[in-house]
Amino acid sequence: MVVIDGHKKEMDIRSFENLEQVFDSVLENGFLDGRIVTDVLVNEEPFSEIYPNQSEDIETSEIESLEIKSATTVEMASSITLELYKVVNIMAGGGKQVAELFRQADDAEALELYQDLLDVTRDFLGMLGSLRDQFSLKDSNGFGVVLEEFSSLFTEMTEVLENEDWILLADLLEYEFLPSVEKWKNVISAIREDIREAAKR
Rank of each mutant, 00 (worst) to 15 (best):
K96G: 03
T38F: 02
S70Q: 04
T72M: 06
S55P: 00
E75S: 10
E59A: 10
L27Q: 09
N89H: 10
I58A: 06
F23D: 00
G34E: 11
H7T: 11
D5W: 07
V37Y: 01
A71P: 02
N53H: 12
S61Q: 12
A92E: 15
S48F: 13
G6F: 13
N89C: 02
G6T: 11
R14Y: 08
E28M: 06
E64T: 14
L66F: 03
K9W: 05
E49Q: 15
D5G: 07
R35S: 07
G94Q: 09
V42H: 02
F23M: 09
N18W: 02
M91E: 14
E75W: 03
K96V: 04
G95N: 03
T81I: 12
S78I: 09
E67M: 09
E64Q: 15
K96T: 04
Y85H: 06
E45K: 15
E45R: 15
E83Y: 14
D39W: 03
E64K: 15
Y51Q: 10
I90P: 00
L66K: 05
H7D: 10
V98T: 06
V37L: 04
I90D: 08
H7P: 01
G34F: 10
G94P: 08
G6I: 09
N18Y: 01
K69N: 13
N89W: 04
A92F: 12
D39G: 02
A77K: 01
G93H: 14
V42C: 02
K96C: 01
F31C: 01
S65G: 13
F31K: 01
N43T: 11
L27A: 09
N89K: 10
F47P: 08
T72E: 07
L66M: 04
S70T: 01
E56W: 02
R35T: 05
N18H: 06
G34Q: 11
K9E: 13
A71C: 09
I36M: 02
E62G: 09
S78H: 09
N43S: 12
V22W: 03
E20N: 12
K8I: 11
E75R: 02
S70D: 05
Y51C: 06
E59N: 10
V42G: 04
S79C: 06
E49N: 07
S65K: 12
R14C: 05
A77Q: 00
I13Q: 01
N29H: 06
T60S: 03
V98G: 03
V87Y: 11
M76W: 13
T73S: 10
V74K: 02
K86A: 11
D12E: 15
L19Y: 00
V98F: 07
G94C: 06
E28N: 05
S79Q: 12
S70M: 05
G6H: 11
V26A: 03
E44D: 14
D24F: 04
V87T: 15
S61N: 12
S25I: 00
P46H: 11
Q54W: 05
E75C: 03
L84P: 01
D12R: 09
N43V: 11
E67H: 07
M76A: 14
K86Y: 03
N29S: 08
L19A: 03
T60Q: 00
E44R: 15
D33Y: 05
E10R: 08
A71W: 04
M11L: 15
G6K: 12
M11N: 00
L82K: 14
I68M: 09
I68A: 08
E28C: 01
I68P: 04
E49R: 15
L82T: 13
I80Y: 08
Q21N: 05
H7M: 14
D39C: 00
